[in-house]
């Protein structure tokens, strides 16, 4: 508990997390407003549509998580940290937990703000959360943000440089995953198992939250063959493995 409190003081005593949280909220809500506000008969507003912009906030969250680690390396405070807590594994685990908790909170706020905003913009649309799929699609955003934050923190620990870690995360999550599909014959098979595609499966499932809307008219559904539950487990497992590798590396390395 002490270590969690330490990392909480560290994270919240700088301004960047607050800015990142604000940017995540504004960007995601702004995009949702544009999409939902312009919905028509051909593209009706659904619960899935209200969360259309989650990946914008996700990018910001990953920047926040990576920066929370890399700035410690940049400013040398990681050495002070290891001096105060020589058990690096516990220190880094506590740090990642606090970052993930913050990401969870930001994710839930963002998701429900977007959903509420959509209710205001389209009062006549059926946006009530009346199925498990609907609930997962909205409340699951925070969970995906939290796990993505763990991935970003792990990459931050491994790479140690802000620019390097952030560009790696952004290029991978925004471009590389979808470009893999272009590889002939095996591309789609590989894509099915790539983590952010799988995370999308957890959120969107088989399109239940899209409530009867034509699948090709909404956000493309994930191609993952897993069930939403297993998709979450797979995504979380991927993050856990990456974090374990990062912590093992950090323990062996000179700080």
């Amino acid at each position: 508990m002490t270590l969690l409190a330490v990392e909480r003081i560290k994270l919240l005593s700088t301004r960047s997390p607050w800015w990142c949280a604000l940017v995540a909220l504004v960007v995601t809500a702004g995009f949702t407003a544009l999409v939902v506000g312009n919905a028509d008969e051909q593209f009706p507003a659904t619960v899935a549509t209200t969360q259309f912009g989650y990946s914008f906030g996700l990018a910001v969250i990953m920047v926040l998580a990576a920066l929370a680690v890399t700035t410690e390396y940049r400013f040398g405070t990681i050495r002070t940290t290891f001096q105060a807590i020589p058990h690096r594994g516990s220190a880094l685990l506590a740090k990642t937990t606090v970052i993930a908790a913050l990401a969870l909170v930001i994710g839930e706020i963002t998701a429900f703000v977007c959903w509420g905003l959509s209710m205001l913009l389209q009062p006549n649309a059926d946006l009530a959360l009346n199925s498990t799929a609907d609930w997962i699609n909205v409340a699951g955003v925070g969970v995906v943000y939290a796990i993505s934050a763990v991935i970003a923190a792990a990459v931050g620990i491994l790479v140690r440089h802000s620019a390097g870690a952030i560009s790696l995360l952004m290029i991978y999550s925004l471009a590389v995953e979808s470009l893999v599909q272009l590889i002939p014959s095996i591309g789609d098979d590989i894509y099915e198992w790539l983590p952010f595609n799988v995370a999308n499966k957890f959120l969107m499932g088989d399109g239940g939250s899209n409530s009867g809307r034509a699948a090709d008219a909404g956000m493309p559904l994930s191609t993952s063959p897993l069930s939403p539950g297993w998709a979450l487990a797979y995504f979380a497992g991927f993050a856990a493995v990456l974090l374990a590798i990062a912590i093992t590396t950090a323990k062996k390395r000179d700080a």
Partner: peptide, 11 residues
């Protein structure tokens, strides 16, 4: 060890 090992935006 190094006086600059402080986050510049932290009090």
């Amino acid at each position: 060890l190094d006086a600059k090992w402080v986050h510049p935006n932290r009090s």
